[in-house]
Simulated scan of single mutants.
Amino acid sequence: MTARLSLGATPRPVISVRHLSKAYPLRVWWGGRGHVFQAVRDVSFDIAPGETLGLVGESGSGKSTIGRAVTMLNPPTAGTVAFEGTDLATLTPQAMRRMRSRIQTVFQDPYAALNPRMSVGAYVAEAFRLHRPEMAAQDRRDAVAQLFGRVGLDPVFMVRYPHQFSGGQRQRICIARAIALKPSFIVADEPIAALDVSIQAQVVNLLQDLQADLGLSYLFISHDLRMVRYLCHRVAVLWRGRIVELAESDRLYDDPRHPYTRRLLAAVPLPDPAAERARLAAAAPAPHGAGLPGDLVEVAPGHWVAAED
């Protein structure tokens, strides 16, 4: 089944995830047996060059866990993650450090990602200092100034500190750091969740422009279903740590097949109260019981749905 989740005749995937699972050990009481919490189980997907795959689901469904496992910030307990054909789990720490210049993450809280004791210019320049130690100090400053301009910030802001910026500006700084080393793949873990609505649109448009200019591939994790449809080429719906539906964005939104997907889309409010009540009344009941989603079945070309137990 997983072999057919690839994108057919498209180029080799930038990221190929197969049977990824992540378990966390629970507290072991004195004299008791150790137990684990299975946060993610048997997840498989590909991301093609220049593609954005959206990952949606309720809180606790395992979205951020997948994002951190794919980048090896929190390695999976089972399965494989291949970046441009290389299994990341087989790399030595030194090789993985070099590979991180090609794989970057933009986190949800930009203020927590920044160093409050370091100017934002020095923060962005750290990428060059660590991965390009041969660069002269002036060359690093020039490169950072160019990055600031590329993300819509005045280079004179380079000497300022994180507390002197708004949330949207901080996220632009984090994006500048992420693209500094010209990566191929970025995990955007709810990068707009902490921003005002007007600023969200600006950051999403910036991500689109950078993708067009640099050929980036994104794993875009978000709760905002409308923004996911706008930005993403394909969408994977996550429930209880497993993908229950995977399809092209428009197809999934126009023809959701899994009950959980339909309930998730029904949670997006409509401005018309009568239409909202009618839609909620017609929505499929929420999945129930303790059973886990079954294997994915292709119900239409490129449209995969988990079989119901």
Rank of each mutant, 00 (worst) to 15 (best):
G291E: 15
G241A: 01
P293R: 01
A89E: 08
S16T: 12
L26R: 14
A82V: 10
W29Q: 11
R97M: 05
V43D: 01
G294C: 01
Q171L: 06
W239C: 01
A127R: 00
T86V: 12
T77L: 00
F220Y: 15
H223Q: 14
E245M: 03
A145P: 01
L207R: 02
E126M: 07
G50M: 10
A266M: 05
F165N: 09
P256N: 11
L195Y: 05
L214C: 03
N115F: 13
I221A: 05
V305S: 03
V106W: 06
M72K: 03
L252H: 06
L238R: 05
H35V: 01
Q108M: 12
Q169L: 02
S222F: 09
A48G: 03
Q171N: 02
E134A: 14
S198Q: 12
H19V: 02
L5E: 04
R117P: 00
R242H: 04
I192F: 04
H163M: 02
R12Q: 14
V297W: 05
G50S: 13
W239M: 06
D272Q: 06
S198V: 13
P75V: 06
A3P: 03
R277Y: 10
H288R: 13
H233L: 01
E126I: 07
V106E: 07
S16E: 15
P273V: 07
R41P: 00
V237M: 07
T2P: 00
K182R: 15
W304G: 00
T92N: 04
S101P: 03
E58F: 13
V156C: 03
L114T: 07
T77R: 03
V203E: 02
A281T: 11
A23I: 06
L91V: 11
K22D: 04
S184T: 10
A39C: 05
R160Q: 14
G294I: 04
A278G: 09
P25G: 09
S184W: 02
L206S: 08
F165D: 11
Y253S: 01
G79N: 07
M99A: 15
S249A: 15
E190Q: 11
S16H: 15
L231N: 02
